[in-house]
């Protein structure tokens, strides 16, 4: 047992801050404080668009094949049973510059989806994955509406919302299925701090953009782009946490104000013209 006198004032204040942060964030912990945080990395400068990650994901997660997949190189979209897509992107400024983009859940460090789910079916694991509990999901699709990347999709057969799980049932012992399936090393997986370091170096050499370091408050899926996201028509989340709790409280309180005004007006109206 640790003697409480041994704790300095500073430590005590520090732990208070952590405790209050923990309180305000609910289940989501701060990423920086997680030494065991992992991350997935996609390097679009290396990707050849073979879509093996897509089929590896389907195989591991036993997902149905969608109709559109029979056509190669057509733009594909996430669905309840396609948790990752690979699409061809074109640099708007320099039309010749093509690259493939592997797109899936970004595993936000403070996921808006988890804050929206009414029944706490979505949790952020300390290792990094944001996972939907499929036995609990009620199929309301609010997570989809809250997600800045429109990731969680409704599976109409199973009547639940599904998405990439960062293969939480494989990691960290085995790499995620898509990473393991990539033939050219365009996907990687490891401790977030290592992955981040490696990605930053790579961005420096190819002169691209690192997506996910700060977007949506930081994500545990990082992407190396050849150019800035807007140059390939990719609209990304702002560099801040999306749908923060304080912001939600601010919005709700204006509703309280509105309700107060309405009741006040009703009261005033009810006092008019009575007693004739």
């Amino acid at each position: 047992m640790r003697n409480h006198k041994g704790i300095t004032r500073r430590q005590f204040l520090g732990s208070l801050a952590v405790a209050s942060a923990g309180l305000s964030l609910g289940d989501t912990a701060l990423a920086e404080e997680e030494p065991k945080r992992y991350a997935k990395l996609h390097d679009s400068t290396k990707c050849i668009g073979c879509k093996r990650c897509m089929s590896a994901c389907k195989r591991w997660n036993k997902l149905k094949v969608d109709r559109f997949e029979e056509l190669t190189d057509r733009e594909t979209d996430l669905t309840g049973h396609t948790w990752v897509v690979v699409n061809l992107t074109r640099d708007i400024k320099n039309g010749e510059d093509l690259s493939y983009l592997h797109w899936a859940c970004q595993h936000c460090q403070k996921p808006a989806c988890a804050g929206a789910c009414p029944v706490k079916a979505i949790r952020k694991m300390p290792e990094g994955p944001v996972v939907i509990d499929e036995k609990k999901c009620i199929g309301c699709r609010y997570c989809y509406q809250s997600c800045p990347y429109k990731v969680p999709r409704f599976d109409f057969g199973k009547r639940i919302t599904r998405k990439c799980t960062m293969c939480y049932d494989r990691i960290p012992i085995v790499k995620p299925a898509c990473v393991a399936g990539c033939p050219v090393g365009a996907l990687d997986f490891g401790l977030r701090k290592d992955v981040l370091l490696q990605a930053k170096k790579r961005v420096e050499t190819v002169g691209g953009y690192l997506l996910g370091e700060y977007e949506a408050g930081g994500t545990d899926f990082l992407t190396i782009l050849k150019t800035k996201p807007e140059d390939i028509g990719l609209v990304v989340a702002p560099k801040k946490v999306v749908s923060e709790d304080l912001d939600k409280i601010r919005i709700t309180s204006s509703g309280f104000l509105g309700a107060g005004v309405l009741v006040g007006l009703m009261y005033i109206y009810s006092r008019t013209g009575e007693g004739e």
Binding site: C117, C140, Y142
Partner: peptide, 10 residues
């Protein structure tokens, strides 16, 4: 059983 008080929907 598992209310999410951070969710307006709840």
């Amino acid at each position: 059983l598992t209310p999410n008080i951070r969710s307006a929907m709840w």
